[in-house]
Design a protein around this nucleic acid. Structure first.
Lengths: 197, 197
DNA sequence: GATATTGTGGACGTTATAGTCCTGGATCGC
DNA sequence: GCGATCCAGGACTATAACGTCCACAATATC
């Protein structure tokens, strides 16, 4: 596969990622993808044997994208203020759409978890990795004495992720960012209860 | 419409509710519903002009069902132990399926929120009502002195709901009930921080 | 320049599903 | 019993989507 081939493939995946986020996976047709990516049907089937495989590529691409972003936001996390900044960035981003479409990973998870076990597994791993970034930062905070020794980074990370995902869902349903803010604030308060100072 | 007519309609909705929970709304065909409800296509279109209306009936029925259950679980809520029982009941129920299919309302919300605004509105109201049941119980706890006066029942209720929904999603994706437990325990801990004793 | 890869464009077949329509029969209220 | 309602069964149409295939052009690689 030449650079040109990979570029076309990437264009297809990029278009599919966006369409499936906005319209949902099942409501996105291959013809939508073909049109949005400015390719031809032959290329779609040249690069992906069927729609299921395209969906899996979409899941992988979206996961990589979210994790890349979150690595940037979390790799230097070492203070409670950093956690607040993390929260603010997510809220800010989601408020641009009034919560519509929800979390890029969460909505895929909800739609695919009981439909494509391979996609589900990838998404599960991605959530674990995402929580891992949080847990690593919380671990640094604990080791540096910002958090009490009995703070459990993994559990805290899972709690933050659940609050985030639940917040996304409630905000998406209500078309109001408020519940997401409230949920994340609760989770942050919970972390705060482990602060030493 | 005679009692027989309403019974048939109810049978259709009941079958659709179950199928759309397990398979998802879009993956459930009208023929699936027809077969599962032991009716004929004539009746489907006799009672519902199109699939969209059936989906809305499903949403309404499921919301009524969940709220009925939650009224039973929450109407007498007046202590922290009651909240723990509420949590245990939900976890217990969801663990039977290893988290598969997620929350009956949450999965509908995720699939329909950006696809049918009317369904989204119904679901949003249902979440508000569900949170209202929680908030009422928390309000009773505050008024009776179990919770501190500065506890905000509405915000606490939203937080609990977000933790619940996020927990459902993570559990569904991981096929593991643990994240749901962790998320709810965090939310309960947060409520606990407002206890007087 | 030869060859393989990548690409366009579109016709085509197949299937799944939504939705319409009709006939005949069962059931219910009066 | 009689009319109205309810229902089964299925034929039928229309459409949308997936997926195949092919002729031919463009582009890269050697």
């Amino acid at each position: 596969m030449t650079p040109r081939g990979t570029a076309t493939r990437a264009r297809i995946v990029a278009a599919a990622v966006e369409l499936m986020y906005v319209k949902g996976v099942n409501a996105t047709t291959l013809d939508d993808v073909r049109a949005a990516s400015n390719t031809s049907k032959s290329q779609l089937y040249n690069h992906f044997p069927d729609k299921e495989e395209l969906v899996r590529a979409v899941v992988a691409a979206r996961a990589a994208q979210v994790l890349e972003r979150e690595r940037g936001n979390l790799q230097r996390l070492k203070s409670f203020r950093g956690l607040v900044r993390w929260r603010d960035a997510l809220v800010q981003q989601n408020s641009l759409r009034k919560g519509a479409y929800g979390c890029a990973l969460g909505s895929l998870a909800s739609e695919l978890a009981d439909q494509d076990d391979q996609a589900r597994a990838t998404l599960a791993e991605s959530f674990v990795e995402w929580e891992g970034l949080l847990a690593a930062g919380l671990g640094r905070m604990r080791d540096s004495g910002v958090l009490k020794p009995d703070a459990d980074p993994e559990k805290l990370a899972t709690s933050l992720m659940a609050a985030l995902q639940g917040g996304y869902l409630l905000a998406e349903t209500a078309h109001d960012i408020k519940p997401m803010e409230v949920a994340l604030d609760m989770a942050l308060d919970h972390v705060k209860s482990f602060l030493t100072a």
